[in-house]
Structures are given as structure tokens and as C-alpha cells.
Design a protein around this nucleic acid. Structure first.
Length: 1175
RNA sequence: AGUCUCGUAGCUCAGGUGGUUAGAGCGUUACACUGAUAAUGUAAAGGUCCCCAGUUCGAGUCUGGGCGGGACUACCA
């Protein structure tokens, strides 16, 4: 910004107008030229560290305004700790792997995942990913600079670098050695047609979910009835059955079945459990099977009863039922809660195979069970549904996987009658020709087995199973059911859920420790740690690390074909050794080692000796990246000499970022000491969406590897929404560009607004109007306050205050007051920052600057600054104001680093920076609560008096004689007397008269002090309240005198203490009174002739001052004033001429008969003709 | 569906441990002030504290149930 007095180097700079973006550009340039960030780190000692971890952003997307939010939080606490003298090194980082990068490249090339390895080599593809991921780095760095986020961008950690990946391998190996890394399976979407698993992203491609019609079936699962076999509810069921008139326990008529619905009958052979809802009510119903017409008892959810049993059929007589009747009679015999059904055993529906482990064929509780569809009882096939898998695992139930990876039934599904073995479970997997051939076969088999004489068309596996169930009295109902079903985006064929091999980190093994250590972490807000994160840990499942993609860290695990032997490689060195060993053993031919080109083959083909192989590997590894495909073909030798292939998977990118405390230093290969000094972090901060992301993976790895937390304090900020509360999205066009915002409104205002508006963990509605307010009200006020200081300091040239004052005893009340406030502010702000409460800190600073410093201290002190020559009192005023401004600059510097530095430089010198300062400590001796209290009393009193003036329409400029203030006690009077002068001058009244009891004119009012009295009175409260409210003034006098009062309540005596009541003054009969929270003032509004003259004088001064200003006179210019004769003014001048002349710096005031040139001014309804000229 | 969270003035937000007139700023309206002047002050209007029930002498605050917004996680037999 342009400095007005730049030619006067010894002065405080003065400026025309505040423009924050300009300030920021200047300051930024200065920071960079002087390496202020580096200095702010290097000037702090190595042995006093505050460790911060930067959560790596992905540079393949552009930064948004929400990044300004989270980075402001990171930056401000690092800056705060620097002020406290800590050394805060901040290493930047980039997250470079993962699906978004791959998808971006695929889109750019117009290819799909299937084309990788065919249309484009994996090596080329990964090269493109590598280039692409860093494409917005410059934009990110630019934002980092412009928003004033101090982080070391020159030495970032980058997750795709070999050193980083090698560290990851070392960590994986550590986990492997601790038996925390294992191979298992999860139920994932799988496309048998493509032979590959699908990610949830792939499943969410448009068009993948389609409405299809499938055969659905409600199967009957027969309850095992003897008490030795069944669960606890047998007796209740038996009672119900017998009440219905059937014998329980026998075969036939007394059988009881669970009804369970499925849209995938092909999973029924793999059924191993049934799930019911704990709080769902179930009923036992007696009826007939519609296909076999046998008498049956079935159990289903009560809510769904009438879906299958029309209410009117309850009237039907069982005796009159004939086979084939459309209307089937039923009767409800019993009802129970789902929880009562738990543990009951049933007969396996289709016993083709038995699960190898676990205790199957029981009823379990599942919280996913609903009564919106089906029967309220869910068929569980753990291999083909992830809910199923989870609930089975929780309940120790084994699984059956009677479908192979090509989507066909296994050989175990060997049915003597129905052709199921080796058949595709989905009709869609068959070609028309296959279907035709299969149809012929089915026709023949069903005919010879006397099931269907002349089959008309192909029957799907689902159809066959339904038919089989029907014949065996195991089917309750079947129908075509239309539902949304996922399809493979590549083959268009339906997807099935299928158990797929994966590598896991056994987080469940360290669950207790994860929970325990989490309790030592300081979460902001606390509920994210206890609630969201805590719940997540309580319900922990093992971390599935496997990803079948291309651009990422390869899982360094090799296994033998049969999976009996595995090896985890923890370093490049180890890999080289294993390669050499493999070549020696003979499982790996040199030409297989690496890689893709003919050149490389010959390169390794002519290996003659071990030494040369080792050397060549060294040179090769030096130039290769540790990504696919370079290890895919390497075959290692197991300990028993068997060949081992690498597991094809990559690892979850969250492992990459969770490992940054170690991998950023290439630990454990280098920098071991550096790592130790920087672990764990004192502080991290990210969006709340990282709770299950980065926050989680950091925690898991730290606990698993080092039995430590990874971070001690964590701030998770909420979402940034548009001003209407909608999520910002390109589609809605409500995205706010961070660069535009900074350019137009400045980074400081943005940062300040974000921090002061609401706690960062709340979702924030971002409104540009809010920025405007912040600039005007906060920065504008502070800027004006500085401007005021500079304006007068440049005239008076006070001594530059040095250091901190030790003594304020000679200072006037107002100075001591603002210094008291200031020291309170230092204390509070420090505590807020230390507690990671930036909003409270910002608001406290804002209140101090706007309310206390500007609107009270400066306003009341203005006269002191422009009146007279330099004096001790003036010096005290300058010292005080300077000290306040300087301290505010330091306190606010973490949040708004630019403006605070600008302010600091203006005050202390251009060569200094606030960011190299140290945080001031509060001087307790300066904090005076009584003083703060009485100043507040003064403010409230002024406010009341001004409101009275207002009511009476008496200008403040019109002096008044006196104001009456009732005081309740001595302390109040003392308090008032010390601030009396401020009140009088602020409200332009000549005297305060204090009235107390003795005066007899104050009317008192009493009411219970509920908080105090409530403790003792309890239920008597109402009665006491009534009694107290009807106290006479004598009663009040009594309690004041005696300090207690014996209250008669229903014959009992209740001793009322003085502390149990509040006594207020509220009225002074005959006076103009205003009252608020126990403070009452009465104003004498009589305007005497003398007062009127004085008012006129002040009015005249005011008008002339306005003229001076209109004419652009300088503050110190002397003037001559001529006025056309006027009687009123003449009278006023007779008394107040000296006063007026002094105020307006007039050498002469003359009354003349006429003026050729003049201005008209209004003086209390009279028009004066006035000429003002320089003298 | 589960977990967490939020709901107070037109808007943005404060309101330890329950206490009787529920606050601030912005905005609106009116008035004032004027040696900080694109600054400042005062006042007015504006509230079923999301709803219902409970505990209590007393609930914005505690308990239960609902409604609505948001985030995350998962699923749809």
C-alpha cells in the first residue's frame, strides 16, 4: 500500500486506505527474500520440538477453498507453537497412488482397466500415472504460498518414490514377522464372466445396476424338535403347536418350519444359518403347504403375516380344506420376540456338503434384518453375501462355497435327480448354444426320473432348485421378483458376491490396545475421538490391504503355488539376495528376472557369475521404480526350494499415508535418529472425513509397529458448505475459488473469517459477505486504531516504548484498565490456543480490539492525544496504545500472519517480523478485576444515560446538570467514584449525586436468589417466592439490617438469609429513570440558561470544526472566524469565547455586520452566516 | 440401516455444573456523534430455544421418544 509519509523515514508509516491483498503481496515478498519461515524454525532450539505431520494431499486434483480451511488450522497451531519458542519443522508431502489417479489416466487415454497390459503396457501406464499425479503441483504450491501456509515444500515426501516404498516394504515385513499380516478372504463383488473382482467404484458406474427379474423363493427350514437338538424356545413352540391340536415331536402334521426368502435360490445349498431381528416379533402359524397340501406350522415375522395369509382366511375351517383350494386356512398359535429364537437349530435344507468348521444351522441375530420384504427371516450363505459373512463370523458359523470361480456349482452339488453339478448358477452366463444343449440334457434327465414328462424349455439352476424344494415339501412360495441387481460393466453379465483372497492386517489382534491408546489422544472435538473413532475401533474388522490395480505399492509377498509357503520381502537388498538365491537354486532363469524388453533379456541372459548378477541387479534397481510390472515375473525360491510367485496385489493407498511418520524419513534404512525425534506427532489436523482414513491408518500402524500413538493432539475440521448450506459442487456451480477469494478479499480475512465464525469442527457455511464484515469490522478497526496512533505519534514523536512496562502505577485509570484487559487477553488467548480452540481465541482478540481498545479506550482518550504538548501523561497514553497494538499483532499472528506482520513492522521496524517474536506472558500484576468491573459499570451507566437523553431528545452536546445514582453499598460508591470522570465527560453531565438509604428517596425491590435459595428451599420454593415478592419496604429494611428474616410458612419458620435474596433499586419517584440488571440512573433534564449557552458554545464549535474539515485545513492550522451579528451567539460568546477559540484553534472570533463570502450553519434552529479562513 | 453430529432472532453464532427478563455481531428502522470520518454511538423491532413426553419447586440446559439437516460406514436377503 502506498505510504503517505514515505519521505520521512523516522515516522510511523501512514496510509490512505486499507487494502489487505496489497499488504499480503508485499509481506509475502519480504518473507521470501528474508527466508522468514526458515528463520522461524532455525531460531528455535533443536531440543524443544513441536512435531507436526502434514497429511499428504493428492496433487492430481486442484485445491479448493476447503483446503484453505484445514491448512489454516494446521498453520496457526504451528505458528503459535513457534511463538512459544518451539522448533516446528513441517515437511510437506504428496499422496500419489490410488484409484483416482488411475481413473484420470484411463479417461485421458480413453481406455478401461481391461486394456491395461494389452493396449498399453503396465510399465507405460504407470509412467503416465506418475506424470499425471503431479500435474497440479504448481497450483498447490501457489496456493500454499498465497494463503500463508508455512510448510517446507522444497523437501516433500512423495509416496511413489523408491525410498518411500522401500520403507513401506520394511513396515509390512515387520507386521508379517509379528504375525499381523495374513491371507484370508472377503466377500466381494465378483464377475465370473470376467474372472475378476470389482471395486465398489466399478460397481457404481452408470448402468451397472439394472432391474432384472429373478426367481425368488420362500423356503421352509425344518425346526429340529427334540430338546437335545433344539434351542431354548422349544417348549414355547411346542405349547403353540399342541394348542393348535397337533402332536409335537412326531413326523408329518406336527412339523414346524422357518420361512426364509431369497432372490438367489442358487445360494440355498450353501446355507448355513438363518438370521432374525432381535426386536422383531414373530408368529407361529398353522396352515397347509400350497404345493404338497400337507399340514404345516411356519414361523415368520408378525408384520408380514398378512402378506402371505389374507386376514379373511383366518375364518376358514381346517376340516373343510381340500387339496388345491385357492384359499388356505391358517391360525396364529403363538408369538415371540426374535431374541427368543436365537440358537434354535434347524435341519440343513439341501445337504450336499457339510461346512468344515463352525457350528452351523442355527438361528442367529442380525441387525440388518428388516420386515420390509420377505419373511423377516434371512437365509444366510456366508460365502455369497457380506452381511452373511459378517454375521456368520460373529456367531462362529462355518461356510459352504459350492460355486467355483467360473460361476458353476462344484462337484459337491451332486444331485441324483436334478442336474446341478457343474452348472452355471446364473442363466446369463450360458450362451444360447450351451443353453440349447443343456436343455436337451435336462429334458432327458427329468423325463427318466419321472419328474417332468416333457420339458418345454431350459430351466435355470434357480428353477431346478425351486422345483426340487417344491417336491420335497420345502418350498412355501415362489414368484418372479424384479429387483435392482449389479452387473459387470465389462461383460454385462450379473455379478455375484464371492469370497476372494485378500491380504489383511490383523487389526483385531491389537484392538484393545488401539482403544486404550486412543483414550490418550486429545481429540478436537472430543466426540469425534470417543464417538465416531471410538465406535469404529469397537467394531473393528481386519484391514483389507489388497487392491487389484496397477498404480500403487506392490505387496512384497511371494507364495508357492499351493500357498503353503510365503515370504515377505522387507528391502531391496533382501530382494536382490533372494533373486540370486533363486537363480542359484534354479527356479529363476536370469532372463526371467526383469522385465519387458528384449534388451533386458539379453542383458541378464549372459550372466556368468553370481558377482556380475549382483552388480547388474544393483545398477538395474538404481534406475527402476518399485512399481508393477517389474516384480511380477520374478520367481523366488521357498525355503524348501519350491518356486514362489509374487501375490499380484497392490496395497491400499491408506497404508501409504498412514506410514508417513516412518517412510518420510526412509526409516529404517536411514535417519533413525531423525525419526525418533519426530515421533509421535504432537499435532495433526485434517477434515473429519479422515477419521476412518488417515487418522485411522496412522493410529493402527503406530500401535501395531511401535505400541505408541502416532499423534497426541488431533483437530478434525468439518465440511465447508456454500452459504445456503449445500455441499459445494461443480454441478451446482457454487464452488468458491480459493485464488479468487484470496486475490479479492485476502488470505488473512479468509483465514480470520473461517476461524472466528464457528468452531472448525462444525460444518461451516461459507459466505463472502462474512468476509466483507470481517475486513470492515475487525481489520478495518485495527487498521484505524493504528492509523490514529501513527497520526498523533508522528506529530508528538513520543519515545518509542521499549520492552514491557514493569510499572503502571502512574498511569491513569483508563490506561490501567486497557492494560488489565490486555493482560487478561494474553492469558485467555494463550489458554485457548493451547487447548486447540482457535475460534475462542479469535473472538477474544476481536472483542478486545473492537470493543475495548477502539470503541472505548481510544474513543475516550482522543482528547489526550491531540491536546497540548508532549507530557508524561501523553507518553503514558502512547506507551499504552503502542503496547496494546503490538501485543495484538503477536496474538493474532497465528491466524492472520500477513496483516499482523505488517502491523508489527509499522510499529517496530521494517526489518523485523512478528513471526520471529516470542509470545508475551501475562503480567498478573496488571490484571485488576475491580478495575475491569467498574469500567464495565461506567459503560453500562453511560449507556443508560444516553438512552434517557435519547428518550428526551436532548443532544449529547447539550450539557446537563446532574445525574442521580442509587448505590447499594460502599463498594459500589467507591467503584463509581473512580470512573466518575469518564462517565461525566462521555455523557456530558456536570455531576453525579449518589443516593443511599439515608436519602430516603430510593425505592427498593427484592426477589429471591433462586440459585442460592433453591439449594436450601427445595420444594418450598414457590411459597417462599410468593412471600418474598410481597415484602414491604420495612421488610426489606429488616432483612438488610438483621442479615436474615424469619419467614412464616404454614406454621413453620424458614430463616431467610441475606444471600438468599437479591435487593435492587428500580425507581426514584419523580425522576426520569432507566434501569437494567440492578443498575439504576436518574437524570436531571432541566436545562438552565447557562447550560443552554454552554450547549450553544459546543454546538458552534462543532459547526466550525465541520467547516475546517470541509475546507481541508490541517489539524494544526490556526484560523480566523467572522460571523454576521447574532444575538444568541453574542450572548454565548460573552461567556465562552475563550473556550471556543481554544477548541477551534481560532486566533480571532469577530462579529461583523455583513460578509460577502460566508457559509450558513445552523445553531440550535438559528441560521448563522460564518466565514472561516486561515490566519 | 448403523455410528456420530447439528437444530436458539431474517443471517452467523454465544449460552460450565438446571435458577425465573435467553444474549452478541451482522442486517433492518429511527436517532445521534463528529480533531479516527468510507470511522463511531444509542435505541427499537425481531424468539412456540425443532416437536412430544418425563424428572424437578424450577428445563434452552438432564432423560426418553420422535422430526429435520449433515458426515461417515455398510447393505439391500
Amino acid at each position: 500500500m502506498k505510504q503517505k509519509n514515505a519521505d520521512k523515514p523516522n515516522q510511523y508509516p501512514e496510509y490512505d486506505q486499507l487494502h489487505l491483498p496489497t499488504i499480503e503481496k508485499e509481506i509475502l515478498k519480504w518473507w521470501e527474500e528474508n527466508k522468514v519461515f526458515e528463520q522461524s524454525v532455525n531460531t528455535r532450539p533443536d531440543n524443544k520440538r513441536f512435531v507436526f505431520y502434514e497429511g499428504p494431499p493428492s496433487a492430481n486434483g486442484k485445491p479448493g477453498i476447503h483446503h484453505v480451511m484445514s491448512r489454516t488450522i494446521k498453520d496457526l497451531f504451528c505458528r503459535f507453537k513457534t511463538l512459544q519458542g518451539y522448533r516446528v519443522e513441517r515437511k510437506a508431502g504428496w499422496d500419489t497412488h490410488g484409484l483416482p489417479v488411475e481413473l484420470g489416466v484411463e479417461k485421458q487415454l480413453g481406455i478401461t482397466k481391461a486394456d491395461i497390459g494389452t493396449k498399453i503396457t503396465v510399465a507405460e501406464y504407470n509412467k503416465l500415472c506418475r506424470e499425471d499425479v503431479m500435474k497440479f503441483t504448481d497450483i498447490w504450491n501457489d496456493l500454499t504460498r498465497k494463503m500463508g501456509y508455512w510448510v517446507d515444500m522444497d523437501n516433500p515426501y512423495i509416496t511413489y518414490e523408491n525410498n518411500y516404498i522401500e520403507s513401506l516394504w520394511a513396515l509390512l515385513k515387520m507386521l508379517y514377522d509379528k504375525n499381523l499380516l495374513y491371507e484370508g478372504y472377503t466377500i466381494q463383488p465378483y464377475s465370473p464372466a470376467a474372472g475378476t473382482g470389482l471395486s465398489s467404484h466399478e460397481l457404481n458406474q452408470p448402468g451397472c445396476y439394472r432391474n432384472v427379474k429373478d426367481v425368488s423363493a420362500i423356503a421352509q427350514f425344518r425346526l429340529l424338535q427334540t430338546s437335545s437338538e433344539g434351542g431354548g424356545l422349544t417348549a414355547k413352540i411346542q405349547e403353540g403347536v399342541e394348542r393348535g391340536g397337533s402332536p409335537f415331536g412326531g413326523q408329518g402334521a406336527g412339523e414346524v418350519y422357518f420361512l426364509a426368502w431369497t432372490t438367489t435360490p442358487w445360494t440355498l445349498p450353501s446355507n448355513t444359518a438363518l438370521a432374525v431381528g432381535k426386536d422383531i416379533e414373530y408368529v407361529l402359524v398353522k396352515t397347509f403347504n400350497q404345493f404338497t397340501h400337507q399340514l404345516i406350522h411356519v414361523i415368520l415375522a408378525k408384520d408380514l403375516l398378512n402378506k402371505y395369509f389374507p386376514a379373511e382366511n383366518a375364518e376358514l375351517n381346517f376340516e373343510e380344506y381340500n387339496k388345491g383350494d385357492k384359499k388356505i386356512p391358517f391360525v396364529v398359535l403363538q408369538s415371540f420376540q426374535g431374541s427368543e429364537l436365537e440358537g434354535i437349530r434347524y435341519e440343513q435344507l439341501l445337504p450336499y456338503a457339510q461346512p468344515k468348521d463352525g457350528d452351523a444351522f442355527r438361528v442367529v441375530l442380525g441387525d440388518f434384518v428388516t420386515t420390509t420384504d420377505g419373511t423377516g427371516i434371512v437365509h444366510i450363505a456366508p460365502s455369497f453375501g457380506s452381511d452373511d459373512f459378517k454375521v456368520a463370523k460373529q456367531n462362529g458359523i462355518g461356510s459352504l462355497t459350492l460355486v467355483d470361480r467360473s460361476g458353476k456349482f462344484t462337484d459337491e452339488v451332486n444331485d441324483p435327480v436334478f442336474p446341478l453339478q457343474g452348472r452355471y448358477v446364473k442363466e446369463a452366463y450360458l450362451t444360447d448354444a450351451e443353453k440349447e444343449q443343456e436343455f436337451k440334457l435336462q429334458h432327458e434327465i427329468l423325463r427318466t426320473n419321472n419328474i417332468i414328462a416333457d420339458l418345454k424349455s431350459y430351466m435355470s439352476v434357480d428353477d431346478l432348485i425351486v422345483l426340487k424344494l417344491k417336491l420335497e415339501n420345502k418350498l412355501f412360495k415362489t414368484e418372479k421378483y424384479e429387483h435392482n441387481y449389479p452387473h459387470c460393466w465389462r461383460t454385462d453379465k450379473p455379478v455375484i458376491y464371492y469370497p476372494l483372497d485378500s491380504w489383511f492386517i490383523r487389526t483385531t489382534a491389537i484392538k484393545d490396545r488401539l482403544i486404550e491408546l486412543n483414550k490418550t489422544i486429545n481429540w478436537k472435538p472430543a466426540h469425534t475421538g470417543e464417538g465416531r473413532f471410538g465406535q469404529w475401533l469397537e467394531n473393528l474388522v481386519d484391514w483389507n490391504l489388497s487392491r487389484s490395480r496397477y498404480w500403487g505399492t506392490p505387496l512384497p509377498i511371494w507364495t508357492t503355488e499351493d500357498g503353503s509357503e510365503t515370504k515377505c520381502i522387507g528391502s531391496i537388498e533382501e530382494l536382490k539376495k533372494e533373486i540370486i538365491k533363486a537363480v542359484e537354486v534354479g527356479v529363476l532363469a536370469p532372463h526371467q528376472i526383469i522385465f519387458e524388453t528384449e534388451n533386458e533379456r539379453t542383458f541378464f541372459d549372459d550372466i556368468k557369475s553370481k558377482t556380475s548378477l549382483s552388480e547388474r541387479l544393483d545398477s538395474k534397481f538404481a534406475e527402476l521404480s518399485l512399481h508393477k510390472p517389474y516384480f511380477d515375473n520374478i520367481i523366488l525360491s521357498s525355503d524348501t526350494g519350491k518356486p514362489m510367485k509374487r501375490v499380484d496385489d497392490l496395497i491400499d493407498v491408506w497404508f501409504d499415508s498412514g506410514a508417513m511418520p516412518y517412510a518420510q524419513w526412509h526409516y529404517p534404512f536411514e535417519n533413525i535418529e531423525k525419526f525418533q525425534k519426530n515421533f509421535p506427532a504432537d499435532f495433526i489436523a485434517e477434515g473429519v472425513d479422515q477419521t476412518r482414513g488417515w487418522f485411522f491408518t496412522l493410529h493402527v500402524l503406530a500401535v501395531a509397529l511401535f505400541d505408541s500413538v502416532a499423534y497426541k493432539n488431533v483437530v478434525s475440521n468439518g465440511l465447508l458448505l456454500d452459504k445456503a448450506g449445500n455441499k459445494m459442487s461443480k454441478r451446482l456451480g457454487n464452488v468458491i475459488d480459493p485464488f479468487d477469494t484470496i486475490e479479492k478479499y485476502s488470505a488473512d480475512a479468509t483465514r480470520w473469517y473461517m476461524m472466528r465464525n464457528s468452531d472448525p469442527w462444525e460444518n461451516m457455511k461459507f459466505d463472502l459477505n462474512g468476509l466483507q464484515d470481517v475486513i470492515r469490522s475487525h481489520f478495518g478497526t485495527l487498521y484505524n486504531t493504528y492509523g490514529f496512533f501513527a497520526l498523533y505519534a508522528n506529530i508528538d514523536s513520543p519515545q518509542t516504548p521499549k520492552g514491557v512496562f514493569k510499572d503502571n502505577s502512574n498511569y491513569v485509570e483508563l490506561d490501567r484498565w486497557i492494560l488489565s484487559k490486555l493482560n487478561t487477553l494474553i492469558k485467555e488467548t494463550t489458554a485457548f490456543y493451547e487447548d486447540y480452540e482457535p475460534t475462542k481465541a479469535a473472538r477474544a482478540i476481536e472483542k478486545f480490539v473492537d470493543d475495548d481498545l477502539s470503541n472505548w479506550y481510544v474513543r475516550l482518550n482522543r482528547r489526550r492525544f491531540w491536546k497540548g504538548e508532549m507530557s508524561d501523561d501523553k507518553q503514558a497514553a502512547y506507551d499504552t496504545l503502542y503496547h496494546c497494538l503490538n501485543t495484538v499483532a503477536v496474538l493474532m499472528s497465528p491466524i492472520s500472519p500477513f496483516f499482523s506482520d505488517w502491523l508489527y513492522k509499522n510499529l517496530k521496524g521494517k526489518e523485523l517480523s512478528v513471526h520471529l517474536e516470542y509470545l508475551p506472558t501475562a503480567n498478573e500484576a496488571f490484571i485488576d478485576n475491580d478495575l475491569e468491573e467498574r469500567m464495565e459499570l461506567a459503560q453500562r451507566t453511560c449507556s443508560l444515560i444516553l438512552s434517557l437523553r435519547k428518550k428526551e431528545k436532548i443532544k449529547v452536546r447539550q450539557p446537563l446538570m446532574k445525574v442521580l445514582i442509587p448505590v447499594l453499598n460502599k463498594k459500589m460508591k467507591t467503584q463509581f467514584s473512580k470512573v466518575e470522570s469518564y462517565i461525566l465527560s462521555e455523557v456530558n453531565v456536570k455531576a453525579i449525586e449518589y443516593v443511599d438509604d439515608a436519602s430516603g428517596i430510593v425505592k427498593k425491590k427484592i426477589k429471591p436468589n433462586f440459585k442460592e435459595l433453591g439449594k436450601r428451599a427445595g420444594a418450598k420454593m414457590k411459597a417462599i417466592q410468593n412471600a418474598v415478592m410481597s415484602f414491604t419496604s420495612d421488610d426489606i429494611a429488616t432483612i438488610e439490617r438483621e442479615q436474615k428474616y424469619n419467614l412464616q410458612l404454614d406454621g413453620e419458620v424458614f430463616v431467610l438469609l441475606i444471600g438468599d435474596v437479591e435487593i435492587l433499586t428500580e425507581d426514584i419517584p419523580g425522576w426520569l429513570v432507566a434501569s437494567e440488571s440492578g443498575l439504576t440512573v436518574a437524570l436531571d433534564v432541566t436545562i438552565t440558561e447557562e447550560l443552554r449557552q454552554e450547549g450553544n458554545a459546543r454546538e458552534f464549535v462543532n459547526k466550525v470544526q465541520n467547516l475546517r474539515k470541509d475546507k481541508d485545513f490541517q489539524v494544526l492550522d490556526r484560523i480566523k472566524v467572522s460571523v454576521v451579528k447574532n444575538e444568541t451567539l453574542e450572548k454565548t460568546l460573552a461567556i465562552f469565547k475563550d473556550y471556543i477559540a481554544n477548541e477551534i484553534l481560532a486566533k480571532e472570533i469577530v462579529l461583523v455586520d455583513a460578509l460577502s463570502e460566508f457559509d450558513e450553519v445552523e445553531l440550535n434552529e438559528e441560521i448563522l452566516k460564518v466565514k472561516v479562513e486561515l490566519n
